[in-house]
Design a protein around this nucleic acid. Sequence first.
RNA 1: GCCCGGAUGGUGGAAUGGUAUACACACAGCACUUAAAAUGCUGGGCCGCAAGGCAUGUGGGUCCGACUCCCACUCCGGGCACCA
Length: 1015
Amino acid sequence: MPYNFKRTEKKWQKYWKDHDVFAASDDAAKPKFYGLIEFPYPSGHGLHVGHPRSYTALDVVTRKKRMEGFNVLFPIGWDAFGLPAEQYAVKTGTHPAVTTKKNIGTFKRQLQMLGLGFDWSREVNTTDSEYYHWTQWIFLQLFKQGLAYKAKAAINWCPSCKIGLANEEVVNNACERCGGPVEKRDKEQWMLRITQYADRLIDDLQYLDYIEPVKIQQRNWMGRSEGARIKFPLPDIKEPEFGKEHFQNFLEVFTTRPDTVFGATYMVIAPEHPLLEKYRALITNGTEVAAYVKKARHKSDMERTDLAKEKTGVELKGIHARNPLTDEDIPIWVADYVSLQYGTGAIMAVPAHDQRDFEFAKKYKLPMKIVTCPHYPEQSCPFLHEAYLGDGHNIESDFLNGLATAEAKKKIIAWLEEHGVGSREVQYKLRDWVFSRQRYWGEPIPMVHCQKCKEKSKYGDGWMPLPEDALPLKLPAIKKYEVADTGESPLAKIAKWVKTKCPACGGSATRETDTMPNWAGSSWYFMRYAAPRDKRFFDHAEWHRDEIQPNDLDKRLFALLKHLKTLLGPAEIPFWIAGSMMLNGLDRKLWRHMHDIDMFVRGADFERLLEVLRADGFIIHEEHNGWNRVEKDGCQIEICPATPLEGELYAHLRHGQEQVLHRYDLERAERGWLWGVPFRTISPVYMLGFYRFLREKFPKTRDVKADAEKMAFLKQYLAHPLNYWMPVTWYNGGMEHATLHMLYSRFWNKFLFDIGAAPTSEPYEKRTSHGMILAKGGEKMSKSKGNVVNPDEIVAEYGADTFRMYEMFMGPFDQAAEWDTKGLVGVHRFLQKVWAIGLSLRASKKTKQSHKTVISSERSESRDLIRSLHQTIRTVTDDIESMHFNTAVSALMELANEMQKAGGVLKKQFKPFVQLLSPFAPHIAEELWTALGEKGSITHSVWPAYNPELAREEEIELVLQVNGKVRDTVTVSVGISDKEAEAKALASEKIQKWLSGKKPKKVIVVSGKLVNVVL
RNA sequence: GCCCGGAUGGUGGAAUGGUAUACACACAGCACUUAAAAUGCUGGGCCGCAAGGCAUGUGGGUCCGACUCCCACUCCGGGCACCA
């Protein structure tokens, strides 16, 4: 009887739902595992075969983790604000909320059809006012901490559609909707100061277990570069009161090559640079300049950033800059290859050592001066075909002469600082986050503008935050959806909503009509899952919100410590702090296990923390564990003596993908092990340990004379599910979110951590990515190409288990894979085969006699099967952990083939096989589990244990090589000694033939594997 | 231009520096069947009668031994892009 997937899948999906099998419990008795996938935008097209690749992968992981005894949280929700629903509303008049609700229905049905083990009781929806209440709350906190501000920023404006466009809607500089050209328009918008977190966002990456490409992309995106800010005096502007030696007016530049300042032969400013306006009167060729600026500003981004384009510019006549090092007056040009956005909007041009300056100087015949010589002391750089960008030694640079580039940089910065004409500076490519959208279907920004409060209020510009108890500020209901043609949000058209009262003075005021971007709701949803229905969600932050300044982690930590001290008395806090730990998941666990450490603090913060703790009398006992600190290659390196767990850690370091590996010194690892921490990057991450400590230790403490009320609050605080579930243990999602979503959410999490609302400074411990699923022919699936594969049809024909398993089997998880419906067949046959084996077992149980014969005839073969089973347990267990799902499935297939060939299998061998199968194909596994006489869901069973004894091979094929080429193999027992192996090899007829009487030069034996005879 | 990935049979792909091509698809042959489907079994990298030789994008190198490590390149995919 073939396996009836339709009936079985329905049956078990109902069972899981009725028995809340996947509901996560907030009870902290078990260790937690929080698996997260990117919650989908519920589009009108329904689920796409690409979505389930990520979902199934983490479903496999979390199902295994449940069976391994973890308390698993695997939630799902809807990122439901967004453009398509709004566009649909414009077209048809259907309210976005209606469309959204319908689409969610479709998605939900499809996800449930796939048997994904989500905890549906924690479903969240960003468009739900109970949800966006807290999105708005976060915005208010950002505003109160000075991290949200209004500024003029360019929006993409489509003049024919009369609407502001999101970046995603601009394709090749044209409007995605009508195909017409897009203009830039300046508009006052809310901005978030993500740049203030740039350093921490970069530095803390090193402690996170993200796949390397994600870290690299994030670092590149934020683009940290170190250099100097240099002031170039403007001698034409007379400032008599400062004397002729001093100038009040400067043109400031940013450069990463301050060492080449002696080679700066001209300056370039951006067409938007304020200097043009400020000194208009002095510029003698004003008309020419104005014409150029006008032309440049009309160019689109595309035109301006086209690298192939020849550089253009105009010299400013009547105004010069003075090179503060050479004291020469040099011309100032305006050119559109310099942008106002980056640095100071002005550069010192060093044509000999910058390719762009080189090209520009060549075109306009500007002087070049070589100041970095690669062949020093041979000064043989007479002519340049292109700029020399590399390092070298300085020449023609006065006091820098003869210095290597790195030295020259240090020296010149010191000189600049000493003379007050410059300083060391770090610049980022990262810009502040434009947070306003001129849309209806987004979270309303809870701000009100009041003319009257403009002067009185501490906020200055008249923007007043709504009080927290006025949240959520709900979107107004609309009957007819209208587009505003002024570039404003459709909300601006709703006079009743716009007109309001000022929350501060009660006078008449107007509401902010822009809404938040799509990224807002997804920047904190992973926290909401911890307590999705909590009406006082972030209120727990109140306890220390007032005493904490943003970025002031120490203060926050000490506030907590002090609080505890008053409650418990210092002697009653047993608290171990360790410095400079490697903070990856495994290592932290190992270290905690080894040393019973409660908290990890890194580098300089550790020293600082110790100082304060000593001063405050917190420290009762100090101990140094024999770590030595040395400096090597600019890195601070800590060396730890060998420990009993050395082997395990060593293995982890070798197999880990952390960049720590790059600094790993294998030579010294022979004697112990070590790793380095770059000297520059020190930052306190993972205060997690501290919170864990509080949660674990506090409830056990007895005889505490404490203020009952505070105690209750503290208890409540510690018991908050957020403290239990955060951070996310494992987050999987697409590479397309490596920068924006990941950075925005890390930024918000860090901010919330700083104000005491989030328990950890990082949201995700581990981040992995899946490859895209492509249509046949390697193209992206898209509606317009008509090549989208719908999971509904596949599931109807082959069932959810086949679908899931195929998605896991189709290729390496992190690489793109082409969908091929034909490939499903193999997986489907495999499941049918497994079913047949299961049926044969059940049949043999009915007729006792045949059961016995099966067993006795199997006795001799079962040793092989048991061995294979244990090898498979190991493979599948490891492969799931490392996301090698395709090889895990192959291993299961191989075992099934073997079981089939053996002609029968014992129940006790088949059961663990079904368990190994269950994360991939949960429905059939549940059915077989029941058929084998087990009660309840297989999810509640215990993951099979790998027994190395049983997995051990007794015989191996010894490979015999001559000069590295395989010439023979011979079966030997596994414990064969190297000497015996050598003898076996030389005794082989085939090897003898190759030797033809000669004596081998050398014989290499790889124990238990091969013998290579070298002639 | 810069930064990440990737390239292995007819196809998707597998291989801690140690038997290249596991597993699956497709194909061919056989068995079961009146027949088909389903299922099972067998086969195959290429050249060669064989001995053997040649094969992991290309060309070099290290090594007793390289898909794996190093150097130089080609093509494909992704990201950034006048970032000073």
